[in-house]
Structures are given as C-alpha cells and as structure tokens.
Amino acid sequence: MTKVTLAKALNAGLRKAMEDDPKVLLMGEDVGKLGGVFRITDGLQKDFGEDRVIDSPLAESGILGTAVGLAIRGYRPVCEIQFDGFVYPAYDQIVSQVAKLHFRTQGRVKMPMVIRIPYGGGIGAVEHHSESPEAQFAHTPGLKVVTCSNPVDGYWMIQQAIAHDDPVVFLEPKRQYHADKAELDEEATPPPLFSSRVVRPGSDATLIGYGPMVKTLLKAAEAAAGEGRSLEVIDLRTLSPLDLGPVYESVRRTGRAVVAHEAHVNLGMGSEIAARVTEQCFYSLEAPVLRVGGFDTPYPPARIEEEWLPDLDRVLDAVDRTMGF
C-alpha cells in the first residue's frame, strides 16, 4: 500500500479506467502535455496518446458538445472543466443535451460521460476559481452528481463514475488535491458510488457535509469531543441521487442536525436536506435542521475568503445553537 494525495489518487483512478476500457477518453483544456493545471491527468497523454487524451480548444461548450457526439458514437468521454467558474459556457450543453438525451430518446441514446469539475475555495485564487455550483447540477434531472472528500474515495469514485452509464458530474475539492495523503489499497472493494457514509460516529448531533467540508466537520467533531460533546459526521458523497438513509438513521438517534457546505445557503443542498430530514424525522427532531454555508454573495476576494467560508468555529457555533433549542 502507498500513501497518496487526492491528485495522485485521481490520476491513478483515471489511468486504471483507461486501461480497463479503450473507449474511455479524456478531454479538456491543457489536459495533455501539461497534465492539467492541477496535474490530475499528468503523464496520461504520454502513455495513452493524443487520440485518447485530447487537448481541446478553449471553449467549454465545445468540449461538452463534442463529448456528446463522441458518446453517441460509443465512447466514454471524461471532460475536465478547468475551474468551477468556467463551467457556465457549457451549461446549455450539460443541461439541455447531456442531461436530456437519454430521456428524449427513450433510452436509445446513452450518455456515459463524466464531467470533472475542480470546485470550492480556499486556494487564494482570483474570481471564478473558487465556486461551488453543485446545487445547479443536482437540480437538473438526468444528471447524477457526486463528490469525493479524500484520496481513497477519489480513486474509486472516479472509476465508478466512468463505468456508470448515466452522465455524472464529478466534483473534486481542489483545496484537497495536494493536501492530505491517505493509504490506498488498490485491492479493496469500494462501497457503491451512490452511497453516503458515516465517517465518525457520535450521539449528540449529526453533522452532514461533503467534499471539502468533510475535513472541517471532522475537525469540528474532534474539537467538540474535547468539550465532551459527541458529534456524528456523515460524508454524503452523492448529491444526486441523495442517499439520506444513513442521515435519517443518525438524526433519529441524535435529534439534531447541522448541514454544511461552501456553496451559498439560499437554495443550496442544505435546503433540500433540511426539508427531507424534517419530513422523515419530524418526531425525532429536538431542533430545526441548521445550515452553515457560504453567504448569499458572490465568492469574495481571496484575502477574506477564510472568513467567508464556513470553518470549524462556524460549524461549532451552529452546533451550540442546535443544542440550545
């Protein structure tokens, strides 16, 4: 077993998927020679050739639109959008074509496509490089949306997404790319792609998050433990479909829930989760489901992003509030 970063794990997962299926193609801006601006596709063009690792012109709608045609021809394109804020030129192709072709053709055309998007903030970037657009895709029927929070999940989930027959928006927490390393056992059996997971058991309140926020929630739970508070942490992993079974089970025990994400709170994933938890766990709840997230403003300039992003203290503040009911 080796210890790898999320970036290396995704690279290894992509490599494995390309070895397993010759129809898998990678496409995007700078994904070839450069290996992508985050080096996620590093070395893959050298080993698989320019026909399978395709440096595209700088046009996101063009990348997604041509990927649709390749999928119709029987390929499995994996598109890299360079940064979250650059996905919008491709939004029409994703929402009106990628998401709807299977439905439009009553299943005659499949869209086995993965749209990889580095997302989230905290890297000190300029505008458009730190956004969290997951709710916009989760709101679109026909798409599936997943996000990994750690290297091991990254390795397995990217392969599972590529092997899946529906289009998958694959959100990668870019702040974690080169951060923590984890032991990767390539012989292990991964959990199903569309499943959430309890990553820390607890009994006083349930913290729900995904992607870059999971690390923050785990730190918050650790800090709370020092004060004698036991917090359960759930990594959602899949945002569409949602797998809230473990969440309901947890909230029925704890009676309290806090949902956290970097995305704006208004109509964010937390809103849907709060609604569903309320519907399913109404008689178990001791307090309303609270949401912690980015404010309903555009993403701020980098020098104040750490104040804007939900951090350990804001999560614990929400825990205090839910315990106060």
Partner: peptide, 25 residues
Amino acid sequence: FGNYTIVIGAQTLHATGYAMGVQRD
C-alpha cells in the same frame, strides 16, 4: 439519422464530436 435538436446550433457540436469518434474508429 440523429434525433431532432431544438436548441439552435447545439447539434453541430454533436456532429463534430461524432466525427472525432469516426476518426478514432
């Protein structure tokens, strides 16, 4: 014969991608 596409021009990219697949085949 592909399926009718109502969003104006979207299918020209699909055609180009399909043609890229033809090249790879």
